[in-house]
Amino acid sequence: MTPTAETDYWALLGLPPDSDSEALKRAFRREARRWHPDLNGNDIRAEERFKLVNEAYAVLSDPRRRQAWESRQQGGAGEPGADPFASGFPSFEHYLAVVLGMAEPEPMDRPEPDVAAHADWPAAAPPPPPPPVQAAESLETDVWLSPDQALHGTAVELELADGTLVEVQTPSRAGDGWRLRLAGVTPGGGDHFLHLRVQTDEGLRIDGLRVLYRLELLPPDAALGCAVEVPTLRGPVTLQVPPGSSSGRLLRLRGRGLELEGQRGDQLVEIVVVIPSSLTEAERALYRRLQELALEE
């Protein structure tokens, strides 16, 4: 996604302009958790908002990109229609300044050549055009962590495109879906993102001290209620699903999350009502009867 001058990244993160880096990190984590698509299955805006939140953090936490964005916000892109190369190509430094939107460097003092004294010299060949600017490309790598590694933080070794090995320390209380940014390390100066994945074989997802689980139910079980066994980090438990539970409803298992420094999180169970892909004729007849009853009301 390409940042636009019309997007107010500070307002998007709920921060006043020029907030410090710690406030920026806290706001990013809060909004990323709030709009994560896996936690907003019924909200079609969640994925787009989640992308904008990540975009806002990537721009505001990078001094170079933030300066360029603030310049665009203040209308600093130059007069419309102005051609910076109307009189020919400037020096390569000036060329980069125009293409990248940076402040132009001061021109170097160059003495004018004494044409009269060297009239017999052959005309100098025109300077070659500046080399193309390599577009910055962002990369992303999935990094799988255990719940304990996500809770306490761990060292992750990553090999960059040029063969360089870097070690990244993940933060404590990390969650599934978090993205860590290595700024300017890809060819062309792009960023490399580490996409943290913290999930168990049973389908439990870790988010700080919380544990998240999606429980799929058939329509009769969701409508009438049922007792169902769900996994937790400390073994399965029986959960009583209330009657009339729709998709998106969250049920809480208190104290079934992770524990750190005397704090223990909960496990949230999200109800997902599913329709079988194939129905028997008797089942179809029952659904038709339910449809008729709904129309009669």
Rank of each mutant, 00 (worst) to 15 (best):
A155C: 05
A222S: 11
H36P: 00
A123N: 05
L194C: 06
A82S: 13
K25F: 09
A119I: 14
P276L: 04
V198P: 04
W144A: 14
E157M: 05
G14Q: 03
G14W: 02
R288N: 06
S71F: 02
Q267D: 01
S61C: 10
L39T: 06
D8H: 09
P90A: 06
N42C: 02
T280D: 12
L218S: 11
E202W: 02
E229M: 02
E157F: 01
A282T: 10
I44Y: 00
V59A: 06
A46W: 00
E112K: 13
K51I: 04
R33S: 09
H36T: 00
Q74P: 06
L293Y: 03
F28S: 04
A119Y: 07
H36M: 01
L13T: 09
G163T: 04
T4L: 14
F89Q: 14
R179E: 14
G203E: 11
D221I: 01
W178L: 15
W144N: 13
R179I: 04
E157S: 12
V230Q: 07
V274I: 14
V53Y: 07
W35H: 13
S246D: 12
R45K: 07
V228A: 02
L96H: 10
P127S: 10
I206P: 08
W10R: 04
L12S: 00
E281S: 11
D43K: 03
G208S: 09
D18N: 14
D201C: 00
T154K: 01
R288H: 11
P63L: 12
V166I: 11
Q74H: 10
S247R: 01
R289M: 02
E157Y: 01
Q73N: 07
P107I: 05
S172P: 02
P242Y: 03
G177Q: 06
V241S: 00
E137I: 15
L158S: 03
P236R: 02
P3C: 12
P129E: 13
D176H: 15
T154I: 01
G188F: 09
T164A: 14
A155T: 12
L224F: 08
R30V: 08
D120A: 13
Q263M: 09
L158R: 15
L182W: 02
E261Q: 14
A135C: 01
G101N: 09
L15F: 08
S277Y: 04
D20R: 12
P242Q: 03
Y95A: 15
A124I: 11
P231W: 04
S247T: 15
S246F: 08
E6N: 10
L165V: 10
